[in-house]
């Protein structure tokens, strides 16, 4: 394996791992706000690593730069989207789960 292949495999493995973490969080966490945590963060790092792998597979060049642009765009918009959704939830009066209602998820 060339160093580049190793880098791609490692990055992809990391990306898939964090995507799985995000998915598990999406199932296990108890309320909208907590799920948004998992979706906005693990998801973004998953995207960073995987798109990093894509960029690495292209090598240095314009395509890699384009992937980085895509990454930058997701970086800007993902947290804003998460904010928009939780803000709507807050505005709709959805109470955050605080753990004292008793029912464990």
């Amino acid at each position: 394996m060339t160093p580049r292949e190793i880098a791609v495999v490692a990055l992809v493995a990391g990306g898939v791992f964090f995507a799985v973490v995000a998915a598990v969080g999406l199932i296990r966490l108890p309320d909208v706000y907590a799920r948004a945590h998992s979706a906005s963060k693990s998801e973004t790092l998953g995207a960073v690593l995987t798109l990093g792998a894509v960029a690495a597979s292209y090598g240095v060049g314009f395509n890699a730069l384009k992937v980085l642009l895509l990454l930058l765009f997701m970086f800007l918009t993902n947290p804003t989207a998460a904010h928009a959704i939780t803000r709507a939830a807050h505005e709709l009066g959805i109470e955050p789960w605080t753990g004292d209602e008793g029912d464990e998820p």
Binding site: F73, L76, T77, T80, H83, A84, R87, E91
Partner: peptide, 18 residues
């Protein structure tokens, strides 16, 4: 009234020209 979120506004301002 529902006031737009400054975060969404600023993000849109930045992203829009691109």
């Amino acid at each position: 009234p529902y006031v737009g979120s400054p975060i969404i506004m600023a993000t849109v301002r930045v992203v829009m020209p691109f």
